[in-house]
Design a binder for these strands. Sequence first.
DNA 1: ATGGTCGACTATCGA
Length: 262
Amino acid sequence: MSFTLATWNINSVRLREAQVTRLLGEETPDILCLQEIKSPVDKMPLEGFRALGYTHVVARGQKGYNGVAILSKLPIEDAGDRDYAALGHARHVAARLENGVVIHNFYVPAGGDIPDRAQNIKFGQKLDFLTEMRDVFAEEKPQKSILVGDLNIAPREDDVWDHKKLLKIVSHTPVEVNHLTDVMEAGGWADVTRQDIPSGKLFSWWSYRSPDWDAADKGRRLDHIWATGDIKASAHSSRILRTTRGWEQPSDHVPVFATFDL
DNA sequence: ATGGTCGACTATCGA
């Protein structure tokens, strides 16, 4: 079987219901993973998604903040969640396809402004979240698994608009990149997007605060699609849909796609 | 070096 999967930090699914519907209608991924839905699950607007064939939903939500959802045309079953770093936030959910493939959808904490856990509790929580991801995957040794989401880290020099300028900016500091590398190694994860697009600047997020985002292009690649080593060779056709950032009242993130032949 | 903009929901907090 072949399926196309997308991941998108939507920054309020209720405000941007029409944009989700537009993406589903125009791009027709089989599975769409959303982050920052900012809604309890029972207040998610699902009717329009259902009408387009996305009848299977696995989600975790909360009022006002965070929240992750997996919308699927293919049958999926709920494969659970975990409260990483004991924050009490809805930042992870997993689903299982009928062929046994597990999809993990993550919204890693942004980590605040100061990259020092002694001065900024949020930065410590981000590192602790990543450390627990490392430990869980070291224990689980995941197979036939896909991990997507807003990981809030741009690991490579060409994942940011200016590597040197961002070395002390949260999302691109060496300590965060090292933590993310540890997660990848513990789980045997491969970066599918960079497997397909191995070089060149690649961004999935542009700040709302940056004027003229398109021309200035001060972006970062914060949104990722990974796969375990046993299925990484089945992934192809990765792309980042930059155009949604130019839609009216956009999310600051854009969707990332990959296709798997399994 | 600083401030810049959003979204949730009322006054700030989180990003």
